[in-house]
Write a protein that binds this DNA or RNA. Structure first.
Length: 481
RNA sequence: GCACCGUUCGUCUAGGGGUUAGGACACCGCCCUUUCAAGGCGGUAACACGGGUUCAAUUCCCGUACGGUGUACCA
């Protein structure tokens, strides 16, 4: 049984990179009929942000990522919040102390800083020096016991074998090998008694029976430490898969400095969750076919780790917008109308009958990027109170006698008959224009402006048909008078 | 600095020892057209570099360059 987890820390809003990691975990689990778990990694007590857990859970739900186990849904492997598993980590650290794969260290922050400065000046890589710092090896058994007994501040560090190679396999990158001398004696338990990510993550993944660890590439360099931990505990390792990073236009890890990066931002801008999810899925993975628009079910069907790419991907807002348009055009107009109706009513628009709104959606969906654009873009359909037209444009029509005559002619010739076919409509316009000494091409733009107060929109024939003869005539009459 | 990872059109990517190196977004042009879109058709544009291996390398190997990540009592 495949069991995967998404393990965010509640230090802020859900990042779109995290969303992708969560999505890939979810898709992988569903593809294999497995279980997707949400685990909150809140072992850094200094960086907690209030409400972050709730926000992340709701953003994930919005995006369509579902969890089978987690703090919000329960499960048999809880608790799913690390701060509620505090005792577990201490117990496990104790195990490592006893079997000699971890040890106590008593160095202060200042002593560690001094050590790093020394190393930097000597031109060597900063790394905990087990043989010269204040730890149970250099202090001896009695002194260590004394310090522990008196409650001196201490941490637990991983005892990394200096002369061994650490090997593991990554599902995306292949076989990895790192020499022990390159691996730091990672702190496992901090002086506040809380575990670091490294310890907590390994203990929890084992206890929660995680089979595949799918996470961002930023974890690749510390994976050897995790491998060593599994070994120290005598546990089987899960499979690892390190995802390529999502990058900004400068090819850096996507960050706040660069436009929208939070799931919430996209939600606020009016992206469909399915469009965002679909785009994000394609950012670092491809199905090997030319299909680009995928329902969630299709993504679950198609997703495999083998087809995840190795290199980082720049987030392309253009393509995301294109994706959103695909969903806008394909969606059921009545559903879209239902979605946008509250916004229209909020505006106090008079014509928000669901069926009518759905017709407006159908008429204009190719001309907008976001559903909510309709609120402004189609105000002349939803309301009889039209926006102000720019003075100059209005004047030039009003001052043109021939045009006024033509529009007046149209006003009197407009009948249900004319709206039977586009040709009938055209014929009527041509006649009305000719009678005023104009070509029909000359009157179309002014006609649109008078009726909609806008220079762009759908075909006039369709627009008037939807507006209705009465409302159209009222606007023409008002202008001519 | 050191370690690790990566490198096909501007972007996301397919491909993989012999291909006209394919698609999508963006861009440009044409068509359609009463506007703006949408749509249709077409176009510009890529294998980082240097050595091997091979009859043949963009594809395999090794270097170099460039980029990224990591190097915390953060995750």
């Amino acid at each position: 049984m495949v069991r995967v987890r998404f393990a965010p820390s509640p230090t802020g809003f859900l990042h779109v990179g995290s969303l992708r990691t969560a999505l890939y975990n979810f898709l992988f689990a569903r593809h294999h009929g497995g279980v997707c778990i949400l685990r909150i990694e809140d072992t850094d007590r200094t960086r907690l942000v209030e409400g972050a857990i709730e926000e992340q859970i709701s953003s994930l739900a919005w995006a369509g990522v579902e969890f089978d186990e987690g703090p919000h849904v329960g499960g048999n492997h809880g608790p799913y919040i690390q701060s509620e598993r505090f005792d577990l980590y201490a117990k496990h650290a104790e195990l490592l102390i006893q079997n000699g794969t971890a040890y106590y260290a008593f160095d202060t922050a200042e002593e560690l800083d001094a050590m790093r400065t020394r190393q930097q000046q000597a031109g060597i890589a900063p790394k905990y020096d087990r043989s010269s710092m204040r730890n149970q090896y250099t202090l001896g058994e009695n002194e260590t016991k004394r310090l522990l007994a008196e409650g001196a501040p201490r941490v637990v560090r991983l005892h990394v074998p200096l002369h061994e190679e650490v090997r593991f396999h990554d599902e995306i990158r292949g076989d990895m090998v790192v020499h022990g001398r390159e691996i730091d004696d990672q702190i496992l338990v901090k002086s506040d008694g809380f575990p670091t990510y490294h310890l907590a993550n390994v203990v929890d993944d084992h206890l929660m029976e995680i089979t595949h660890v799918i996470r961002g590439e930023e974890w690749l360099p510390s994976t050897p430490k995790h491998v060593l931990l599994y070994r120290a505990f005598g546990w089987d390792m899960p499979a690892f898969a390190h995802l390529p990073l999502m990058l900004d236009a400068q090819r850096k890890k996507l960050s706040k400095r660069f436009g929208s990066v939070m799931a919430q931002d996209f939600r606020d801008q009016g992206y469909f969750p399915a469009a965002l999810t679909n785009y994000v899925a394609l950012c670092g993975w491809n199905p090997g076919t030319e299909q680009e628009v995928f329902s969630m079910a299709e993504l679950q069907q198609a997703f495999t780790l083998e087809r995840v790419s190795k290199s980082g991907a720049i987030f392309d807002y253009n393509k995301l917008q294109w994706m959103n348009s695909q969903y806008l055009v394909a969606a059921d107009p009545v559903e879209l109308a239902t979605e946008i109706k509250p916004l229209l009513d909020e505006r106090g628009y008079a014509y928000t009958d669901l069926e009518f709104v759905a017709s407006v959606v159908t008429l204009l969906k190719h001309r907008i990027h976001f559903l909510k654009d309709l609120v402004e873009f189609a105000d002349y359909l939803f309301s009889d109170t039209l926006t102000e037209v720019e003075q100059g444009a209005w004047q030039s029509i009003a001052a043109d006698d021939a045009l006024r005559t033509a529009l007046s002619n149209i006003n009197s010739s407009l009948t249900e008959e004319c709206l039977q076919t586009p040709d009938a409509f055209k014929a009527m316009i041509a006649q009305a224009a000719e009678a005023a000494g104009l070509k029909s091409g000359k009157v179309m733009k002014p006609l649109r402006l008078v009726i909609t107060h806008r220079e762009v929109g759908a075909e006039l024939f369709d627009t008037i048909k939807l507006l209705g003869i009465d409302r159209t005539k009222r606007r023409l009459t008002e202008f001519v008078a």
